[in-house]
């Protein structure tokens, strides 16, 4: 993670407009995220959570406005792992693309509880285990901004606990997090962006 001065925002959105299917979902969204900050995006289905996160992660371009972000780690609904690769190979490949030299694979796999699965094929993993694998990639990526789309999906309680732990470590180390969450998942101490509600 590169050292960023504390006052410098890690992620800065200015008058973003998000469109989907030729229709404007969100307009004029402006906010900054600094080291240690967390922003939770909430709202009902179809309000544009995923569209917004894809823009924040740099996957899609905003319809208008500007976005500046330092290195981004993105966790989407789909994880981008190939069924036929082994767990270790899949991680290695993504680390190579992210230019991570000598990634601590075993360490991180142990951290997400997949230590004994490193030679398994990805298709032999359950949905929850695949999610853990995606979290392992996120940890290896060492990005300062985490953009997470419903990160708790498919995880069991142990998985949720380790993810919450990872959030704390990440923020303490000077990172920041934007994540979309369902209404029924409580998350304390974070800024919130509620989509689908009239401005207060």
């Amino acid at each position: 993670m590169q050292a960023t001065p504390l006052d410098q925002p890690l992620l800065s959105a200015k008058t973003l407009r998000i469109d989907r299917g030729g229709r404007t979902l969100i307009e004029g969204l402006t906010f900054d995220l600094r080291a240690g900050e967390q922003l939770v995006v909430r709202g009902p289905n179809g309000c544009g959570k995923t569209s917004l996160l894809r823009v924040l992660a740099g996957v899609a371009a905003p319809a208008a406005g500007t976005l500046t972000a330092t290195s981004v780690g993105y966790l989407g609904h789909r994880d981008g792992f190939k069924d036929t690769a082994s767990v270790a190979c899949a991680l290695k490949q993504w680390c190579a693309l992210a230019r991570q030299q000598n990634p601590a694979l075993d360490e991180v796999l142990a951290q997400v509880g997949l230590a004994d699965r490193s030679l398994f094929l990805v298709r032999a993993l359950s949905a929850g285990q695949r999610r853990r694998l995606a979290i392992a990639r996120l940890l290896l990526r060492k990005a300062s901004v985490w953009v997470l789309d419903e990160p708790f999906n498919a995880l069991d309680s142990a998985g949720r606990a380790l993810l919450t732990q990872a959030f704390e470590t990440h923020c303490a180390a000077g990172g920041c997090i934007v994540m979309a969450l369902h209404e029924d998942i409580a998350f304390d101490g974070a800024k919130t962006l509620s989509l689908g509600e009239a401005a207060a």
């Binding site: 299917g21 969100i26 969204l29 709202g43 179809g46 800024k191 919130t192 689908g196 509600e197 009239a198």
Partner: peptide, 19 residues
């Protein structure tokens, strides 16, 4: 098309609560 889409989903308003 716009009519039929907007009926299904009006433009999202939002509230930003920066704590």
């Amino acid at each position: 098309e716009t009519l039929m889409e907007n009926q299904a989903a009006p433009t999202t308003s939002y509230r930003l609560d920066l704590g």
